[in-house]
Write a protein that binds this DNA or RNA. Structure first.
Lengths: 352, 352
DNA sequence: TCCCGTCGAGTCAACGTTGTCTCAGCGTCG
DNA sequence: CGACGCTGAGACAACGTTGACTCGACGGGA
């Protein structure tokens, strides 16, 4: 269990420019110039300074530097997601990180767990650290607390969900159209009784997907039935329970539209537990790993997470580069991936 | 596509303590005291200051504060993972974030993509931002570049993989024992020809797991056969190809031990493509979502990611709290989860 | 009444860095 | 040969904040 010796007897504090300057026998400002690669330094002196810096293990203090510098930039942005461990959030922040990396910018990541209070807290914590900008997948429904921050020059971009009571750049998937596509796909397979299972309706994406569901039914002249609609929240367990209840109804649905990742997986589990995976059609919103390897494969409306993240990050950096144009709301299209579960026809399995 | 009006005509810079002080008619130091909740301030004055701060939308500048403060702490730590988008890294950083959150500490996350140069770069970038400490899943095999940083007082903890040429706290899974358990499990099911598929052997975890594989074979008096050993690297595609080649050998293995996540999934795909998923036994190292829902379910050696991350974070914070004890190397046990694929017996399916 | 201790607020310098200005030294040109 | 421009390095102040110290007012005890 135990290993080596004490890590360091006296953790001497970090060397500063002053110490480098002393060792190199130059003024502190000259060290600054060398570190910042200002060309008007005698190469011989520059070499001496660099040698001294290496010898001391000198590393510039970016926080001090950004404090003094004109623009006050920290080369750090903040990213607030629902949960850094979930695949959607993880993919999103990785994409943002990639864009940031190209500019030497680092990303502070925070998880909100759908808690609006936590959103405010963390946004403040990021601002207190003077991040140059913020990419937010919001949890709350009131973002007016960011108005003063925007006015103070902190750029904010919303991804996946729109801001409320705030004017800010936004990048979202075309949730409504995606849901319409999903339901139309099931209608085309002959289904007339299509259940909806989704996250709480207070979440804007869930609301939009639900809206698309209702709209598609309406256009297809299918009466809306509250009985087969469940806003369960984003957990596998509750989705499993809700799906079970739906399928044991006297007049059960012949198809499911699940509008969120965990809900989709919960429904998949429930269908399999009931042995109905080849009988009840199923389309989920948002793709997930291994969806293709199940049998049947799960048909999904896939979001372009890469595009979502990249667009958001690029909008943010354009603002940081001085873009003062009106705020924009960008919608990223979704696409249907047919894998089997969504193509089960209404009369039961293998009727086509 | 377009939305609102210009975000702000003149992005006034952020209000400072000086401005709050002016508005409240007090000295700047008094504002400092109020912000830091020093109790020796007249409640009436404190209220006036707070009012002024709110009016101006004042937010303290933590970078300036940490510069001046005695300890120089930024309440920020750095976390370097293989790829923030992969489930293992994501779960790990989320756990670290959780521990950090309890202390009001934020986490800067960076992805290394197995690139040692990138590891050094990012570690430096984090240090330049004066993070209080670093949690690293290393990509490189030489961490001596961190020696001077350690001496300068930056705490470093390694997770999942050991450091090389550096004495630092470390938390890893019991990779060797996990592999031994996996292979023993397959031996118990009667297998004598067990293939190994894993990540590149230069990666320490892969090497340890391979070592466990060889050791278990040796103890079981099974001759080692190079033919059925593949160090493919961590990609589904190459794992698929390697698995296919293994199973079309004249004397193919009757069981697979896959020592990495993506390799496991690749093998699963290949087995299904060949229709051998119920014939060839399979145990993977590291659990993955939906492993239980496949048929057969995939038996795995599960790592306790939660424990790994939490232990690492706690070790780091203990160092930050002044712990000067010798560095420690903690090993977290793994556990076998039986789901079906690993219990397929040697004679073919359903022979037990 | 006077002295001293206490309490609360203010002054000053400093954290590590960089923008602005100054200045010494050198070469050039009239 | 002296004025001038130019080049390269240093002095100084400032970024926003806080630690150390100061100072005035007030209250109590002798």
């Amino acid at each position: 269990m135990t290993q080596g010796e004490p890590p360091s007897p006296s953790p001497r504090s970090r060397p500063t420019m002053r110490e480098v300057a002393a060792l190199a026998g130059v003024a502190i400002k000259t060290v600054s110039r060398v570190v910042n690669e200002v060309p008007t330094v005698d190469p011989a002196i520059a070499a001496r300074v660099r040698e001294a810096a290496d010898k001391l293990g000198y590393r510039p203090n970016l926080t001090a530097s950004s404090l003094r510098r004109g623009d006050g930039r920290t080369a750090t942005i903040g990213m607030l997601v629902e949960d850094a461990a979930n695949p959607f959030s993880a993919a999103l922040s990785r994409t943002v990180e990639n864009v940031a990396r190209e500019r030497g910018v680092l990303v502070l990541v925070g998880s909100l767990d759908e808690d609006p209070a936590r959103e405010r807290e963390l946004a403040r914590a990021l601002i207190d650290r003077r991040v140059d900008g913020l990419v937010i997948v919001p949890a709350g429904r009131d973002h007016s607390y960011l108005i003063s921050e925007q006015r103070s020059g902190t750029c904010v971009v919303f991804v996946d969900r729109e801001p409320s009571l705030l004017d800010a750049d936004t990048v979202v998937s075309d949730n409504r159209q995606g849901a319409v596509t999903a339901v139309n796909h099931l209608l085309k397979a002959g289904h007339r009784r299509i259940a909806y299972l989704g996250d709480r309706a207070t979440i804007s994406t869930a609301a939009q997907r639900f809206d698309g569901y209702r709209h598609a039914l309406e256009v297809g002249h299918i009466p809306y039935d509250d009985e087969i609609v469940r806003h369960t929240g984003a957990s596998e367990e509750s989705a499993i329970a809700a799906t079970r209840r739906l399928l044991t109804l006297p007049d059960p649905p012949t198809a499911l539209f699940t509008s969120q990742n965990f809900v989709t997986i919960g429904a998949v589990r429930a269908l399999r537990a009931l042995g109905l995976q080849d009988t009840v059609a199923h389309v989920g919103f948002d793709d997930f790993p291994l969806a293709d390897i199940l049998s049947p494969g799960i048909s999904v409306i896939a979001q372009d997470v890469e595009q979502l993240g990249r667009t958001a990050a690029e909008m943010l950096f354009r603002r940081l580069d001085g873009d003062r144009s009106p705020t924009r709301a960008v919608t990223i299209p979704t696409r249907l991936i047919e894998r089997g579960s969504g193509e089960i026809t209404a009369g039961g399995p293998r009727h086509d």
